[in-house]
Design a protein around this nucleic acid. Structure first.
Length: 218
DNA sequence: ACCCAGGTGGCCC
DNA sequence: GGGCCACATGGG
């Protein structure tokens, strides 16, 4: 059903283009994708600035860095016993096996995705974020907002990651701009969604909102 | 004093 | 294969 694209255009009208992913380099996308897991983006921004300030926002520097130093620089993102190790391991893996980030990201999408998923701390959403935003591949990113809002609003009735991804990829235009914008807009919607407010008269979903016709917030 | 954040991995059955 | 759970900091 094309309701999905109605939602897309409505969100685009209401929120405007998001122009994701906010990063200067492909490597920064990868680092940010790991850091943002279960973490507010504001905290990721601080950590990324810290890493840059310490000269660690590069493949070689991060691969050689002390995990204790990475931990203190990325402290705002929490998870000090997992994320620093995962960042260093990711950088070491790419450096040792490909030499540079571009060589790694040039791989065909399916094999790159498969390889990303073998890395510690990279699950389906992080892998697809890297594919879509760093490697310019058509993989739709399914985050918790998309799953929850989509199911509760009746847009679809799916719970598995791959199913939801296929659903989007079957319907939306096959271009990077739409893939990126739609995902970013769903996150923007999630942040502003009714659940956070006593009422939501201006909910972009309108009649499609899970709370339409009722009082919001419950 | 809760609840949540642009998830993932490790258990247990 | 599915259902919980810990992980941790910063902001509402």
């Amino acid at each position: 059903m094309q309701r999905l694209m109605e939602v897309y255009h409505k969100l685009l009208d209401d929120f405007g283009p998001q122009d994701w992913w906010p990063a200067e380099t492909a490597f920064e996308v990868i680092v940010g994708a790991i850091l943002t897991q279960q973490t507010a983006w504001k905290n990721v921004e601080k950590s990324i600035e810290n890493l840059k300030g310490a000269g660690l926002m590069s493949l070689d520097a991060l691969a050689q860095a002390d995990t204790g130093q990475i931990a203190s620089l990325t402290a705002p993102c929490g998870f000090p016993r997992t994320k620093p190790l995962r960042l260093k391991a990711m950088a070491s893996y790419i450096r040792d096996n490909y030499g540079d980030v571009d060589s790694f990201l040039e791989k065909p999408g399916d094999s790159l995705r498969e390889e990303l998923l073998t890395l510690d701390g990279i699950g389906p959403e992080t892998a697809d974020s890297i594919l879509c935003y760093a490697s310019d591949k058509l993989y739709f990113v399914v985050d918790a907002y998309t799953r929850r809002i989509g199911n509760r609003s009746g847009l679809f009735d799916l719970d598995e990651y791959d199913e939801i991804q296929f659903h989007f990829q079957r319907i939306i235009p096959k271009d990077l701009k739409t893939y990126r914008e739609f995902h970013a807009l769903m996150v923007q919607l999630g942040k502003n969604h009714c659940r956070r407010k006593p009422e939501c008269a201006s909910c972009p979903l309108g009649d499609m909102c899970e709370h339409a016709g009722r009082s919001h917030g419950d």
